[in-house]
Design a binder for these strands. Structure first.
Ligand SMILES: [Mn+2]
Ligand SMILES: [Mn+2]
Ligand SMILES: [Zn+2]
Ligand SMILES: [Zn+2]
Lengths: 137, 137
DNA sequence: AAGGCTCTTTAGAATGATTTTAAACTAGAT
DNA sequence: ATCTAGTTTAAAATCATTCTAAAGAGCCTT
């Protein structure tokens, strides 16, 4: 199976029509590597790959992929959106100083006790962000 | 001690000159009640109190109070900033559906294990956000 | 109490990430 | 090949937040 067909199939399974733009972005983001991207960094990657996708479509695609569960949005600041290519359950270190986000191995955080969700609600996800700063000794 | 003097003193201790605007905002936000505000909701409160503070100053003051440790910023989305008048260590439920943020009692979440911070870094804060959604049975 | 220095506030303009628009395009079905 | 609904596009609009530079106000010194 050609790589293009592979990602097209992945998009179909996610309920997204495999357009040229979506397949190109899927090939960049859904190849199994775990990383964190912004609309801007993704646009750079696209350009480096010799392609072009309009700004609006980059945003739309990131939102659609997230909605479809192919990406995950990470909330650490509100300057711009961060997307995580790792949709498995895991947590993050965040260093505000240089806006650096680092994955924490899945078993690095153990939640021994969680509160019950408020009446009529259920827990959808638990996000742990450990804010760190460089030690100044 | 008059309430105004009380908040002025609090601001001085935080290293902030107690201007009319800062004292007014401190009286609204630093009275011991635990709640979550936005620049917008705070501006409404100020107006309701029959006062006026310019938009820029509302933003500046929220940022300065946060920097001074009198408020805490909560990160649950990147539509706009949320500020918490409770600076004690506690966590949150967040219901994206209607953008509702609810405090979790300090002992509601127990972290049995935390990873070591990366070399040369130390942990500054641990934020736990439990995303919830209404059960539809 | 007045003067002066510095910090602060102000209205308005600027910024910048993101969304919206309406027209041109295309994937997929017939 | 044709049709249609969904998609992409460049450009404009949105909107929370920051910046500007001029006017105002704490606060320290006389
Ligand atoms: Mn609270
Ligand atoms: Mn913005
Ligand atoms: Zn991650
Ligand atoms: Zn809170």
């Amino acid at each position: 199976m050609t790589p293009k067909a592979h990602f097209a199939e992945k998009l179909r399974l996610a309920g997204l029509r495999p357009t040229r733009q979506r397949v190109a972005i899927a090939a960049l983001l859904l190849d199994g590597r775990h990383r964190h991207v912004t609309a801007d960094s993704l646009t750079e990657e696209i350009t480096t790959a010799g392609l072009h996708v309009s700004g609006g479509t980059v945003y739309n695609t990131l939102n659609q992929f997230t909605e479809a569960g192919l990406l995950r949005r990470v909330m650490v600041h509100n300057d711009y959106s961060l997307f995580d290519t790792n949709t498995d359950h895991h947590h993050h270190f965040y260093e505000a100083e240089n806006d650096q986000l680092v994955d924490i191995p899945h078993d690095g955080v153990i939640l021994a006790q969680l509160p019950a969700a408020p009446d009529g609600h259920e827990i959808k996800a638990v996000d742990v962000v450990i804010h760190i700063q460089s030690k100044n000794p």
